[in-house]
Structures are given as C-alpha cells and as structure tokens.
C-alpha cells in the first residue's frame, strides 16, 4: 500500500517544552487514520506542523514522498493537504457560498481570475461548483444564508466543504464530532462516508471512540508528545500503555 503522508522522527519544542517528541507514523493512501490521546498530548500541534502553522524543530513530513517541512504554509493546500479547525473558523457575516469561494482559490487556473467580475455572470461556474458540493452533502438550502446564523452542526460541515473544494488528497479534521448532538453526528458520519467513497484520505483527531471505531481503520495514540501505540482499534484498545494514559495506573495493593 502506498503512503500518502509519512512522518519521520518529528519533534517540536516551544522554548524548553517538548510538545512532540520523535514521532513517526504513516497514513496510507485512501484510508482513515485517527490521532487520539489525552488532552495536551500534542495532537493539534501535529496538525499544525503538517499544515505549516508552526515550523518543525526536527524530522520530516513527506507528502507523496516529497518532504514539505520547508514549504510555506500557504503552498501546502496546493500539495493536497487541507484541514478543518477545532473551533469553526468561517467568516460569519459572509454567505455560505462566499465562504466556499475561498476554498476554491487553489484551483483557479489563472492568477488574474482573482480580478474577474464573475458576479455579473448568471450562474457562474464557480458558484455552480460550490452549489454542487453543497447539494452533494444535502446543504443546498443554506447557500445564501450568512454563516453566522446557521446551526453549529451545519457550520461544521460547511467548514468541511470549504476544505474539500480544494480537492485535497489528505483531509485533516480536528475534533469534527465535538459539540455535535446525536443526529448531527450521524450526518457528519454520512458526510465522511461520502468523502471516503471519493477516495479522500482522512486524518482525524477525535475523542468519540464510537465515532472513530466506525470510521477509522488505523489509530495512532499520542501521550506527552510520543507515540505509545498504533494499529487497528481493537488492538489499541487493549494496549496496556493506552489504558494507563487514559485511565491512570492501577496502584499495587
């Protein structure tokens, strides 16, 4: 199986604090991988290193075999890396469609497209493309609504659609199910199923274990910045170190 993303001995220190330490794992093409661990384990930092928000201290991040640690963050989406955020970061006062337009940016063919007065055109291809994705995920009725007025679960999925409009090969989701109610979680699940059918590789930070179990083939467990376990869900679940990280050690009596 080919590796889409390959992380080798990745480390990150902030001042004297080692947040990620000698981390290595692979994300095979076309799979879903979960990154789990207790709060403060360094999961979001790993996402920030992959998307280039922080420079790495040492180690390599290979995307399709090419090391991207020196690539400026804004060029990484062009290499197929897109992400969503833990707290939704859309533009509240703009409509759903306008927010989605920004997601299309890396797919523009010519630089001067930015200056094209496309709103004159009735049903411009950019608007059509954004609306097509909205309706593929059953959200077309919200197209012209300002994002700030939408329910939380819908905003989360609009955030995902904005990310996938760049046609990423790897989509990173930071706690997608956090704060969602049961029916919103089911809708999110369906949403991710569609993405998997399209062949998008997923890397997911999540605390909801049922959710992870039903979506991800592979789990990587972090604790204090180190990988403590890796493998399929059932194997990781019974791992002694993982149990200790989540539940604490049993005192010998």
């Amino acid at each position: 199986m080919t590796m889409l993303l390959s992380i080798q001995s990745l480390s990150k220190t902030f001042g004297g604090l080692e947040v990620v330490r000698d981390l290595s794992f692979d994300v095979p093409d076309g799979t879903a991988t979960a990154l789990i661990g207790p709060n403060g384990a360094g999961k979001t930092t790993v996402f920030n290193l992959i998307s280039g928000v922080y420079p790495v201290t040492s180690g390599s991040i290979r995307m399709c075999g090419v090391d991207i640690v020196d690539l400026p963050s804004r060029h990484r989406i062009g290499r197929g890396i897109a992400r969503s955020f833990q707290n939704i970061r859309l533009i509240p006062r703009l409509s759903v469609i306008d927010n989605l337009l920004i997601g299309q940016h890396v797919k523009l063919k010519r630089p001067l497209d930015v200056l094209r007065p496309f709103r004159f055109a009735r049903d411009h291809e950019w608007i059509r493309a954004a609306k097509a994705e909205l309706s593929a995920f059953g959200l077309s009725q919200y197209a012209d609504e300002p994002v700030g007025l939408l329910p939380y679960g819908v905003r989360k999925r609009v955030d995902l659609i904005r990310a996938i409009l760049s046609s990423p090969s790897l989509l990173m989701l930071d706690e997608p199910a956090a704060g969602l109610n049961a029916s919103e979680t089911r809708e999110l699940h369906r949403h991710l199923d569609i993405l998997r059918e399209r062949g998008t590789t997923l890397l997911i930070i999540e605390h909801d274990m049922h959710f992870i179990r039903s979506i991800c083939e592979q789990i990587v467990v972090l604790n204090f910045g180190c990988k403590i376990a890796e493998g399929p869900f059932d194997q990781v679940r019974t791992d002694q170190q993982v149990r200790e990280a989540y539940l604490g050690t049993e005192r010998a009596t």
Binding site: L94, V106, S166
Partner: peptide
C-alpha cells in the same frame, strides 16, 4: 470579483486565509 471575498478572509482570520492558499 473574488478580491473582495479574499480581503474579508484576510480581515476575519489571516491564519485560515493563509492555510487556504
């Protein structure tokens, strides 16, 4: 044009604008 939406994106959240390319 797209420029207006992009300006709004930069104003609203420069980090996200950067990560979107």
């Amino acid at each position: 044009t797209r420029l207006t939406v992009y300006f709004a994106a930069v104003k609203n959240d420069p980090l996200v604008a950067d990560l979107l390319g």
